[in-house]
């Protein structure tokens, strides 16, 4: 059972890491506009000109 000494802290730390990441995301305003975020991933203006699909203008 000595393996628990490593596994439990590891599990808790991973969980805490996730919680911290969420708090950071919340603080940096990433939950302010969920609908916008869902649509922003579809934008391709970060790609070079020749790889874009032209459909929105």
């Amino acid at each position: 059972m000595s393996v628990l000494v490593y596994l439990i802290p590891a599990a808790l730390l991973l969980g805490l890491f996730g919680l911290g990441a969420f708090m950071w995301a919340l603080k940096s305003g990433q939950f302010e506009d969920l609908e916008g975020a869902a649509n922003r991933v579809l934008r391709d203006d970060d790609l070079p000109e020749d790889q874009r699909e032209h459909h929105d203008e």
């Binding site: 916008g36 649509n39 922003r40 579809l42 934008r43 203006d45 459909h55 929105d56 203008e57």
Partner: peptide, 11 residues
């Protein structure tokens, strides 16, 4: 309404 409008407006 859509992603296109948003991109167009911001750009």
């Amino acid at each position: 309404r859509c992603a296109g409008c948003m991109a167009k407006l911001e750009r």
